[in-house]
Amino acid sequence: MAKKSAKDRMSNEINAGSMADIAFLLLIFFLVTTTIVEDKGILVRLPPWSEEPPETLKFKTRNVYSILVNANNDLLVRGEPKRITELREGIKEFIMNPQRREDLAESTTDAIVSLKNDRATKYGTYLEVYNEVMAAYNELRDEQANKKFRKDYQYLTQEQKKEINAIIPLKLSEAEPTEFGQE
């Protein structure tokens, strides 16, 4: 008996049976503490603030695509009521003006999208409209990038992106909100 125990002592090993448990616990710990926050959103660059009232610029009516959102979340696009789902195609046609129509933008660089909402407009609606405008621009840039470089816009180099941006500049003007609705 004594002989055997001496032999056991020689081949001493750390008990690895509980390693699995330890690993599992670590795993659970990290699973619990890690917050998976969807840090995604629409990136916007606000215009700088200036105390003086902005100078009034005159644009030709055909170059401005005005979108008004009222307190009931209804859209008025260039004087006509429209649904949000029709917005994207409308903007794309307005910017590109494929049929050279008299009432749409003269050129892609002249096109301006103007967005105005009420203080009582729902934020969800506002962002939906904003999203559609961005989507229209992104789709046009994608088309342009495919035509020029045979690649999607996101795979272009910085210089190529700049080139596309010069062809289709994002001109989105946001007016001060109106105060008609009840907040």
Binding site: G41, L43, R45, L46, P47, W49, R119, Y123, L127, Y130
Partner: peptide, 20 residues
């Protein structure tokens, strides 16, 4: 939201991300 945006512009914080 407009008030907050104005305040951000006044303090020159122009990069904004509308979380969605």
């Amino acid at each position: 939201v407009s008030d907050v945006k104005t305040a951000l512009r006044k303090s020159n914080q122009l990069k904004v991300n509308y979380s969605a």
